[in-house]
Every structure is written in structure tokens, then in C-alpha cells.
Design a protein around this nucleic acid. Structure first.
Length: 479
RNA sequence: CGGGGCGUGGCGCAGUCCGGCUAGCGCGCUUGCUUUGGGAGCAAGAGGUCGCAGGUUCGAAUCCUGUCGCCCCGACCA
């Protein structure tokens, strides 16, 4: 017996997550505290994420570039809130080539400062705007507590940095990107995220407006899955990013930044995973279907492999990302569990019985055991599988949406909210004061997640203090 | 930084309190044979200066001192 079962989600959600990341072969712990090695399977997933996003960024006029990893320490002191926000978690290079450096260099925790500096150099005229640059890379933040994918010291992400002539245009950019993030999360990752604006306390260091997409994990905690910020002129004034407008007047740019990180992988794990392991949305899965040939004798093997190879070619031609598991040192049962652990959406079993009947066994990952297993004809398998991939994608989103909606509550009063927040989110009117937000945090360990846009023009009262309020906010415990 | 736990073959652990001979066990790995439709069986092998540095002792994985690191729970954060 080589059973090596996962801790169940109900037993210990955090432990389930840790084990899953390792067993699904997504990542491993690096020798440096808080750092991770993204293994090939995890990176393949990340590549699918980056490919989908990169396409959208480019379709909306953005271009990619690469800025240096090292930033002069002094750059961080130029924007007051920014330095206060990031100072505690900076890693600093003090020596190079065996000598102490004149000025310490910071390993970038985010690149507003270095990019701001360069933009000041590049932007002279209104004709130079907008500047719409994105960068794919990694950043380093000396986090006190880390967890694979959710919060590692070094993490991979994209950070977009844009400069515009007007506040309106910059805000449009912020919203455009937020829409790209949300559309990606919903349509590609099957994560029913909620778009909204962050409170003052939850805002990015140095931003005037921070917007986010927030997802609900299966333990009902919230995960901020991406952010898009409007800076106004905070950074352009700090770095003197100026241009001359049509009236020959010197103006400060309006800037934005936005980012989505490998944390997205954590969101996918915690939204879709089950006690058998990872469950990947078909559109992002590195392997969408795996073929497991089953046989006993050499004669059977010859017949089975003939069919398996033919199916492989057909499905490959149909554009399905495929894997043939022809390992002969492990049993079929082991393979089933192995691929379930890795979250492959569809398993195709081909055995002697199937060769005889012209069928294959299809097992869909989103439904456990017999319920998800069916026997289908070999003919037309490409369209059967393609159709099933779409169905699985839809059903994951539907399931996650239903789960989310079932766990968002509208408490009648503060006492009820405290109860609700022990296991779920509250969507309540809030006066937007720091005092009420802090009180909730102290009483329930929950913070405001975001304030959704376009709320109906209805006046309510703050769930905490009872003052009149026009906007509702999500409260939740968070990662 | 505060609290808790842990460092022993690749992984998970026992042994440590109460020092004693060639440091055990499970998984994994290698080879062979039999197996393969839900985590296979048998057999034979390979693999460890017990985190590191001192000390006590005839003798240290075990006792003492120091040190480094990791994990979990909190405060901070994408």
C-alpha cells in the first residue's frame, strides 16, 4: 500500500493547501527562507496565465519592457507614503564586487520608483502620452510570514505602469485593467471575483484610488487576487514626470500601476481544489486530458496502444493539450490518483474492453468517483472531449459562484455581522470611517475587502455606528 | 519580533527523559520475477560523520553551553 493521502480540507485547510502544492508538483521550498521554486508543472500553469493576460494587455495598446531589479535606496524616499508602506520589507544590497556601495541598492519590491524615474526622462510633450508599459518579472518583499504562492518573499508577477495627460484618462486605464483582470479570473480561471474599490486603509502605499478583484476561498476567507491603482499626481510630482501641453504649459502626468501575481495560482488551488488534490480549470490546465492505457498481456498491450496512439493523434490535432501516461512501473490505480492530484480535467482510460467495444472511459475531475465517469464511443472523441472541457470549465465557475453567493450575508445588525464573519462574508452599509473599520477588525478579525461599483442609489445606515451611508462594502477575513 | 514545534539516509518518523556494542522502522529508489479497469506482491540491494561548533565522559543522536536553520500560530503585506 503506497497510499499517500492529503489532509482533508475539513480537517485542516491550511495543511491541505501546503501538502497539495507539494504533491501536485507545483512548487517546492527554496533554501532561502520564504522563497519558492516554481516547478515545471507549476510554471506551465503560470505560463498559461501570463499568455492569456499578455494577449489582453497588448490588445489594449500596452507594450512590454524590462526595468532593472536594483533600485537606488534614495528613490524610495521620494514618495512619503510609498516609503512608509514598503520600508519594513525591503531587502538591501550594501556590497558589490567586494566593496561597500556608496549608496545601498534596494531589490525591487515593486517598480513605481525606478519606472517613474525613467518616465521623467522619457516624457517631454503631450505627444509622448499615454505611455503604456508592462513588465513581467519578479519582486522581493521581506515578508514576515510566507506561504507558497500566497505570500512568498520573491514572487512572479506583471506590473503595468502608465502615464496619462488627464485624471479621467488615467482612471479609465485603471478600470480597463481591472476589467481585464476580472474577465480573466472569471472566464479563464473560473474564479467568480468581485470588483471594487479599496478603503483608505487598504489602499496601496502612495495611491489615490486602489481597486481590486476579491475571491472567496473554500474556507470562506477572501483573497485579493489583483489590484489596479490610480496615483493621481503623487508619483509624477515625486519623480517630476512632466510634459508640456498644447498651450505650452508644464503639467504633471497622471499615472497608474496594476499587478497580478503568482498568488493567482493560490486562488485557483483554494477555490477549485478538493480532497483528492488540485482541480484545474480546463482553459488554464497545462494538461487538459491524460490518456491511461490499461493492459495485462503483450497482446493486449499491442491492441490497446494502437487505439491509444490513434486517439492521442486525433485529440492532439483537435488542439487539446494532452499527455499519454505509458509508464509501466506504476499501476493504473496509482496513475488515476496521481493525475487527480495534479488536477488534470479529463482522464481517458483505454483498456481491452474498450478496444473490443470501440469505447473509452472518460473521467471528469470536477466530479468525484463514479459520478464523473462515463463510457463513450471512440468515434468523435475529439468533439466529446472538447465539449466536456467546456462543460467542466462552466461547472467550476458555477460551483464557485454558488458557493460564494451562499456565503455572503446581509446581516441585520452588528451582532449578527460578528456571527456571520466567523464563517463567511458580510455585505453591509458602512460609513467609510476608519473607526468603524478598525472596530470590525478588532471584534471579528475581518477587514473591508472592497466597495463594488455602480451600487443602487439607496441610502442605508452603517452596520457599525448607524450613521447614514450610501455604499455597501464587503467585510471578510483575509489572507 | 512574541508564542509553539522541529532539525536523525531522498521523504516521514522512532530512539533523546534514564549515555553503552554493527543507529532502527515505513515510504521512496535500484535489480529481478509475478502484476496492471482505483494508490500491487515477493526477493535481493544501495543509501546516514544523528543541523553546526565547543564541552563533560572510558564512551554522546542521547547530558551541558553556544549557534544556525526550518515549519506552525499572531502583529505586517500582492
Amino acid at each position: 500500500m503506497a497510499e499517500d493521502k492529503l489532509t482533508t480540507r475539513a480537517d485542516d485547510f491550511s495543511e491541505w493547501y501546503n501538502q497539495l502544492v507539494l504533491k501536485a508538483d507545483l512548487a517546492d521550498y527554496a533554501p532561502v527562507r520564504g522563497c519558492m521554486v516554481v516547478k515545471p508543472y507549476g510554471w506551465a500553469l503560470w505560463e498559461n496565465i501570463t499568455a492569456a493576460l499578455d494577449k489582453e494587455f497588448k490588445a489594449t495598446g500596452h507594450v512590454n519592457a524590462a526595468f532593472p531589479m536594483l533600485i537606488p535606496m534614495s528613490f524610495f524616499e521620494k514618495e512619503k507614503e510609498h516609503v512608509e508602506g514598503f520600508a519594513p520589507e525591503l531587502a538591501v544590497v550594501t556590497h558589490g564586487g567586494g566593496e561597500k556601495l556608496e549608496e545601498p541598492l534596494v531589490v525591487r519590491p515593486t517598480s513605481e520608483t525606478i519606472i517613474g524615474y525613467m518616465y521623467a526622462k522619457w516624457i517631454k510633450s503631450w505627444r509622448d502620452l499615454p505611455v503604456l508599459i508592462n513588465q513581467w518579472g519578479s519582486v522581493l518583499r521581506w515578508e514576515m510570514r510566507t506561504k507558497l504562492f500566497l505570500r512568498t518573499a520573491e514572487f512572479y508577477w506583471q506590473e503595468g505602469h502608465t502615464a496619462h495627460v488627464s485624471a479621467e484618462e488615467a482612471k479609465d486605464e485603471m478600470f480597463r485593467i481591472l476589467d481585464i483582470y476580472a474577465d480573466f479570473a472569471i472566464n479563464e480561471a473560473a474564479l467568480p471575483v468581485i470588483k471594487g474599490e479599496k478603503s483608505d486603509t487598504e489602499r496601496f502605499a502612495g495611491a489615490q484610488i486602489t481597486t481590486s478583484i476579491e475571491g472567496m476561498m473554500q474556507d470562506k476567507r477572501a483573497l485579493q487576487s489583483a489590484t489596479s491603482h490610480y496615483f493621481g499626481q503623487n508619483f509624477s510630482k515625486a519623480f517630476e514626470i512632466q510634459y508640456v501641453d498644447q498651450n505650452n504649459t508644464l503639467q504633471f502626468c497622471e499615472t497608474t500601476s496594476w499587478g497580478l501575481s503568482t498568488r493567482m495560482i493560490g486562488a485557483i488551488i483554494m477555490t477549485h481544489g478538493d480532497d483528492q488534490g488540485l482541480v484545474l480549470p480546463p482553459r488554464l490546465a497545462p494538461i487538459q486530458a491524460v490518456i491511461v492505457p490499461i493492459f495485462k498481456t503483450p497482446e493486449e498491450k499491442a491492441k490497446v496502444m494502437e487505439v491509444a496512439d490513434r486517439i492521442f493523434k486525433e485529440l492532439k490535432a483537435a488542439g487539446i493539450r494532452l499527455k499519454m501516461d505509458d509508464r509501466d512501473n506504476v499501476s493504473s490505480g496509482f496513475k488515476f490518483n496521481d493525475w487527480e492530484m495534479r488536477g488534470v480535467p479529463i482522464r481517458i482510460e483505454v483498456g481491452p474492453k474498450d478496444v473490443e467495444k470501440g469505447s473509452v472511459a472518460l473521467a471528469r475531475r470536477d466530479k468525484p468517483g463514479k459520478e464523473g465517469k462515463s463510457f463513450v464511443p471512440q468515434t468523435g472523441l475529439d468533439s466529446t472531449v472538447s465539449g466536456l472541457l467546456v462543460e467542466i470549465q462552466d461547472s467550476l465557475l458555477k460551483r464557485a459562484t454558488e458557493f460564494r453567493d451562499a456565503n455572503i450575508h446581509d446581516p441585520k445588525d452588528y451582532d449578527e455581522m460578528k456571527k456571520v464573519l466567523e464563517s463567511g462574508w458580510a455585505f453591509s452599509y458602512w460609513c467609510e470611517s476608519r473607526e468603524c473599520e478598525t472596530k470590525v477588525k478588532e471584534d471579528s478579525k475581518a477587514t473591508t475587502r472592497n466597495i463594488p461599483f455602480n451600487q443602487p442609489d439607496v441610502e442605508g445606515t452603517c452596520i457599525v455606528c448607524g450613521k447614514p451611508s450610501k455604499r455597501k462594502v464587503y467585510f471578510a477575513r483575509t489572507y
